[in-house]
Design a binder for these strands. Structure first.
Lengths: 173, 173
DNA sequence: GGCGACATGTAATTAGTTACATGATTAT
DNA sequence: ATAATCATGTAACTAATTACATGTCGCC
């Protein structure tokens, strides 16, 4: 679609602010909690984007500073318009950075015992994440969109675990 | 494990140089071709890391500059040691940046027709990637480690396509 | 009223992308 | 021999992470 001016982080911030004014801190924790698993954003990025969005007139900071400079940002009408445009954009490419595959790719250089241990530890991490996603799935009965993302997570973890159990197992004998 | 000094990009570069001397350009294309799908590295990063690795004595540039400053880098014994250490490291966290999930998460704000189109287009991209991975799987019969990574790709694409066909379909009616 | 935990934001550093410059090669 | 394409590297810019500074609150 038409190229949007905001980047994905800014778009995300606008999306959360569309639900009501929030401070940078609150935004950052809300984002991490809800989409952090498939869209990582750090606190510093949120603050940076808030400043730049304010410069562009897409959010305003409600002047009255609270304790330790805490300030709430509110989305402007222009911000809402921009969010609508951004959220319907063409998808950018997926960024995948999967350390376990890097290690596997170079696996011939890893002592097999050690490789087995790495895969085993990774399997545990995946199992934990799977449990979290399953929990989220149950919580999110009221929001089909968020729920669908949890189900992606479930499917992903199950796929990766199965991969370790078949391909990984074959590699480490 | 013991914290390694090299980062993942540098480690990757060392890993490729372990197979023989190469120029930055060749490294970059080899990396992109083989692991680019799950470990993105740009040309500029490769050049930067080569300089820093040279500074650390882990690679040397074989002085004679070829056409347009092309220069081949060779891994040093210290570089090999460092690679061995790095490749057996504990896994860092996976970085996932999955635009289709971001769009889905905010899906209530996207016109359903448009959302359906976005998911449909994404499905096609996944189908193409799946075909590539299948092809790679066939080519890589001689390298079980690389082959295992291709099979991860196959499983991933199939999972994502199935997700679109079930969860995605449910969302757009 | 000092101490530890949490809240809040900023600054410094590193990583990653995009845009650019120019030298070779190939095709017309 | 000119244009088009590919090879090769660098520089400029943007994004992302880590480290830091300071403020507030509850508690013993």
């Amino acid at each position: 679609m038409s190229p949007t001016s905001v980047n994905a982080t800014a778009g995300t911030v606008l999306g959360f602010l569309a639900g009501g004014p929030m401070s940078g801190w609150d935004l950052s924790s809300a984002i991490t909690r809800s989409i952090g698993n498939f869209w990582n954003v750090t606190r510093s990025q949120v603050y940076r984007e808030l400043k730049s969005l304010e410069g562009a007139g897409l959010v305003t900071s409600a002047g009255s500073k609270g304790p330790r400079d805490r300030v709430a940002y509110r989305i402007t009408p222009a911000g809402r318009r921009e969010f609508k445009r951004w959220v319907a954009r063409d998808l950018e490419d997926e960024t995948r950075r999967v350390p376990v595959l890097l290690t596997t790719f170079f696996g011939r250089n890893v002592p097999p015992k050690r490789l087995a241990a790495i895969l085993g530890a990774h399997r545990e991490v995946l199992a934990e994440q799977l449990a979290e996603y399953r929990h989220a799935d149950r919580q999110l009965a009221g929001d089909p969109f968020a729920r669908a993302t949890a189900r992606y997570g479930i499917a992903y973890c199950r796929m990766a675990i199965r991969w370790i159990d078949t391909e990984g197992a074959a590699l480490v004998g």
